[in-house]
């Protein structure tokens, strides 16, 4: 799933390249560099991995191996509406994995990925601190407790409808002016 960089990201990538100069060419700098890249770009696109590998004169696969080991690094851009499915102990017991699977199937992506239109991304998280509401999912900033497979579609639909309404309002504004 190789997504095109947006123009802003291409700009940010150039920024990353210039920032790399501040790091010595030493392997021990790999993780700080990756953190810097992710801070600037919000994720690690293949282009950035290549850039880092070239800077440190190591193979790309080595950069990739280190980056995949740590949970803090992501390889897909965050979606406009991040979905966090909780798989903490309480949510696990109450079928959190089923909720996650429902989101995955509905959006056609796996956990850790982003839809091609960059609207949604799914993430697994371990406990969000409201176990009494298990199973829990967080969409945008809103906590949805007592999740059920039947609720998944409704929640996604609501976001789409809201988006459509916004667009319609926008059009109306424009035509009204």
């Amino acid at each position: 799933m190789n997504q095109e960089l947006t123009p802003e990201e291409k700009e940010a990538l150039k920024h990353v390249a210039s920032k790399l100069e501040f790091y010595e060419e030493q392997r021990r700098n790999l993780i700080p560099i990756l953190q810097m890249v992710q801070e600037t770009l919000a994720y690690l696109p293949p282009e950035a991995i290549k850039l880092v590998a070239e800077h440190l004169a190591i193979f790309e696969c080595e950069v990739y191996g280190v980056a995949t080991f740590y949970n803090q690094f992501r390889f897909h851009p965050p979606g406009k509406h991040p979905i966090k499915a909780c798989l903490g102990t309480a949510c696990h017991v109450r079928g959190g994995d089923i909720i996650l699977e429902n989101f995955e199937r509905k959006l056609g992506i796996h956990a850790g990925e982003t839809t091609p239109d960059r609207e949604f991304s799914i993430e697994k998280v371990a406990c969000v601190g409201c176990c009494a509401l298990a199973p829990v999912a967080i969409i945008d900033e809103t906590v949805h407790g007592h999740m059920a497979p039947s609720k998944v579609e409704g929640l996604l639909m609501r976001i789409e409808i809201e988006k459509e309404m916004e667009e319609r309002a926008k059009k109306k504004d424009e035509s009204g002016q």
Binding site: I58, F59, C61, Y64, G65, T68, F69
Partner: peptide
């Protein structure tokens, strides 16, 4: 000199 294979994920 360098490995073209690596462990990934965990």
């Amino acid at each position: 000199g360098q490995s073209a294979l690596t462990f990934s994920k965990r």
